[in-house]
Design a protein around this nucleic acid. Structure first.
Length: 558
RNA sequence: UGGGGUAUCGCCAAGCGGUAAGGCUACGGUUUCUGACACCGUCAUUCGUAGGUUCAAAUCCUACUACCCCAGCCA
């Protein structure tokens, strides 16, 4: 690898190149360190993309490491789901590691060593007392009365902690740093706490568990991670991170370096785990994979592709700026990818019947599966004397520049013929019953030498080739006026007031019969309408399609 | 009023002392059997503010302002 040939695309890569050139590190090994306590969402995709792509760029690798140091919140099912999620994203971790299993013993030894060297002490202050003596943002904290306990005594007590001699929450191991430090994280942070909770991975082997601030840097160092990339909320933990790593491995040549980037926020997108959990428990959504959620499971179920999500995330760059991305910026990448992969189908969402008065026999027609592909295949469809078009594709009072069907006007039925509307037949109640049209036999698609030019092309489904399907349309999960739903909730808005009412709307549509071959998660473009994906709830008799995104609509009446 | 961060077009974002890339959006136009896609074009005399250094500053210096994060035995 020639460092001179690598172009840094962000400040992290810049720093890495500098380190590598200066010999501070010799390779780029990153880690993807989820706590198995919830489902991943699009924010995680940004973080993991940075972890994996950075390592790949420098010829290194990434470990998937379960940061499972707090059994009260964790569950093995989550850990399992991450392996699948990563696969869906197309990333392969070099190793899959469970911190609890891999490092708890070694961490304990290091903690003992800290005690012996006077860098840590056993503290008998209660949680409340610890909190009270921590000081405030502007006032220094007070030293714990146990701070100067003999190392030998601390060590004995720490061993007793591990042996289960102390009740939960009664005692901690604390780092001895500086209770007056302006950085709150440095005020003798807790390294170990006592809790008798069954751990999904290591069972009841331990009753003391390390805290993140101690565990994470030690794990990184033990694992040989060279770059520990995390979000900006850990920025002021970095001095602590370094303190632990430097004291645990004095003189070690290559130490991991933590660097932080800003996390992803998208307008109107709710990501907070605890909020999503409440919504799931309330039964107002289908589950963690609800298509309205921006969880990986939700996006996948909705029909959004991994490529789209990754392209979006990559387009954002890596910085430390507090940003809020408009949803439409995301939609662009969803459409961009779907345009390349979605099979085209003619589907009428809101049917208006049309009778072709001069057609004697049904005709077979062909619909291109995907014109954006060089070698596009076609599927068979039907043109018949009774068919459906979209209600909105016919108008009695057309607005300016309306180039669809009007009474006495002509329009092309896509993949079939140009038709002319001669008559509108009404029902007793005054509604339109159906349209009477004639088709122009010399205008068949692909064989049209008529020279007749028509302004518009609309899609249709022949009555005898139509199959009724269910469409799930989604509004934003939360009300549009809350640009930052997580923030609104944190500020005290009630979840009930934030949620959009009836954000799931089921409708029916008429699709070409060939759609019966669709498999779950297959992507379609319903021509001129939008992108749809077959939902797993579908049965043989009831195909359910999730609306992914609409097509852009350039029609402006002004 | 402690500490840590961030400020370049409506939203992202390059830029690293030599005279403001790119993407999204928007707006024009071309093309089109998807009003999609594609393609062309327009969109910052100006870089949070005010001073200063320099032949030359978004880039260096000084001061100020705004916003974000931190007081879990969570991660």
């Amino acid at each position: 690898m020639n460092l001179e040939e690598i172009k840094a695309e962000n400040f992290i890569e810049e720093a890495i190149i500098e380190d590598l050139k200066a010999g501070k590190n010799k390779e780029v090994i990153t880690r993807c360190p989820p706590e198995p306590s919830g489902h991943w969402h699009i924010g995680h995709v940004k973080a993991w993309t940075i972890d994996f792509e950075t390592a790949i760029k420098f010829g290194g690798y990434t470990n998937l490491r379960m940061d499972d140091t707090n059994p009260t919140k964790e569950d093995g099912d989550f850990a399992d789901s991450y392996v699948d999620d990563l696969k869906w994203l197309g990333y392969t971790p070099k190793n899959v590691i469970y911190s609890s299993e891999a490092y708890f013993e070694k961490m304990y030894e290091i903690a003992c060593d800290f005690i012996k060297r006077g860098l840590a002490y056993v503290c008998e202050l209660s949680g409340d007392e610890v909190s009270k003596t921590r000081g405030t943002l502007t006032e220094p904290g007070k030293n714990s009365p146990y701070r100067n306990r003999e190392a030998s005594e601390s060590l004995k007590m720490f061993e007793a902690m591990r042996a289960g001699k102390y009740p939960d929450g009664s005692i901690t191991l604390r780092a001895k740093i500086d209770m007056a430090h302006p950085n709150m994280n440095m005020r003798d942070p807790v390294m170990y706490r006592v809790m008798r909770v069954h751990h999904y991975k290591v069972g009841d082997k331990w009753c003391i568990y390390p805290m993140y601030d101690f565990a994470h840097p030690i794990e990184d160092a033990l694992e040989g991670i060279t770059y520990s990339l995390c979000d900006i909320s850990f920025e002021d933990h970095r001095p602590l991170y370094n303190w632990f790593v430097e004291n645990a491995f004095p003189g070690k040549k290559y130490l991991p370096r933590q660097m932080e980037f800003s996390k992803l926020a998208i307008e109107n997108v709710l990501l907070g785990k605890r909020y999503l959990k409440r919504i799931v428990n309330s039964g107002k959504v289908m589950g963690w994979d609800d298509p309205r959620f921006f969880t990986i499971a939700g996006m996948r179920r909705r029909g959004i592709t991994a490529a789209a999500v990754k392209n979006f995330v990559k387009s954002l760059g890596v910085t430390k700026v507090d940003s809020l991305i408009p949803k439409q910026q995301f939609d662009y990448f969803v459409r961009e990818d779907l345009n390349k992969v979605a099979t085209r189908a003619m589907v009428v969402l809101d049917p208006l019947k049309v009778k072709i008065t001069n057609l004697v026999a049904d005709e077979e027609i062909f619909v291109e599966d995907n014109p954006s592909l060089e070698s596009s295949t076609k599927h068979k469809s039907v043109f018949s004397n009774e068919l459906y078009i979209e209600k909105e594709d016919f108008s009695l009072n057309p607005p300016p520049k309306y180039n669809r069907l009007v009474l006495g006007g002509m329009v092309r039925l896509k993949n079939a013929y140009i038709i002319k509307c001669n008559n509108v037949v009404y029902k007793n109640n005054g509604d339109i019953d159906y349209l009477e049209c004639e088709y122009l036999p010399e205008t068949r698609s692909g064989n049209d030498n008529s020279g007749i030019k028509v302004k518009g092309t609309i899609h249709f489904v022949a009555k005898n080739n139509a199959v009724k399907i269910t469409i799930r349309n989604f509004k934003n999960l939360t009300k549009e006026e809350y640009l930052e739903p997580d923030k609104a909730l944190n500020d005290g808005i009630e979840l009930e007031d934030l949620l959009e009412e009836n954000s799931l709307i089921e409708t029916n549509a008429l699709a070409e019969k060939f759609i019966l071959n669709a498999k779950v998660l297959d992507k379609f473009q319903f021509v001129r309408k939008g992108y749809y994906s077959l939902d797993p709830d579908s049965t043989k008799d009831n195909l359910i399609f999730n609306s992914i995104v609409s097509l852009k609509d350039g029609f402006k009446t002004k």
